[in-house]
Structures are given as C-alpha cells and as structure tokens.
Amino acid sequence: MSLLGGNGLGLPMAVEIEVVDVDITVTQSAEKAILQTMSGDNENHVLVISADSGGCSGYLYDMKIIERPLEEGYQEIKIGGKSILIHNRDSDLLNGIILDYKDTLMGGGFQITNPNASKSCGCGQSFG
C-alpha cells in the first residue's frame, strides 16, 4: 500500500535547461575505438553519451551502447556510419566536448575533455 494519499503532492520540480545544438569532436583514436566496439552491432544500436548528477564533482559522464531509444529529444551525430546520441537535456553540459581514446593499461579507455567544466575529478569521469 502506498504511503502517499491522494492529496498534498506538489508539482514536479521545474528544471529549466537551455537546449543548444551539440557539436562534439571525436579524435581518430576514439572513432576507431567506437567502430571497433560497435562492429558487431546492428544498425539499430547507438552510442549514448550523457551527464547524470553524481560523482565527485557534481555530474558524472555515462556512455552506453543501446538500441535506439524510442523517445524523442536526442541529437544525433554520425561518426563513421555509427550514431552518437546526446539528449537535449544534456546539450548545454556536453556541447563542445572532445571525445578521445587512450590505449593504456592504467587510466585508459574513452576520455572526455569538457570546455563547460570548471572542475573535474582525478579519474576523469566526473565534472562540475
């Protein structure tokens, strides 16, 4: 049984976000890594880059390969025939990022440099 009665619930917290046209830079090594990682995937699979609340510095990057979401609200960037999606609600946080890939055993993998970040975490996964 729910603790919430039928009355007294407030309206959803308003979130005002400036939606901008996203422009990102993908380095050659990152493009190669994306194509390699997604080589076995069908055309319906996309790479989604997002910024969620959390992490040491306030926001946490997330990258995942998923089936193309049904919902609207994503901006699409084509890289070597593969699709990168960024949600409109992340557009102001992720516009201008440089996506790189470092092939090292320690601290390797995809790296994001973000011009919108005033601070970032040592591991590179969080920014604020």
């Binding site: 009665g5 007294g8 407030g10 917290m13 609340s53």
Partner: peptide
Amino acid sequence: YLSSVARTLSKNSSHVMNATGAI
C-alpha cells in the same frame, strides 16, 4: 542537490515532486 537529480530524471520523463503535504 535535488535540482540536479530532477535534471537527470527528466531525461526519462521522471520527476522530483514535493510530497511534504502528502505524508
């Protein structure tokens, strides 16, 4: 801090709501 949670949840049509008057 709930405003940044609300921002994250809003991408999935989810919300942060004030339930003070409901409980």
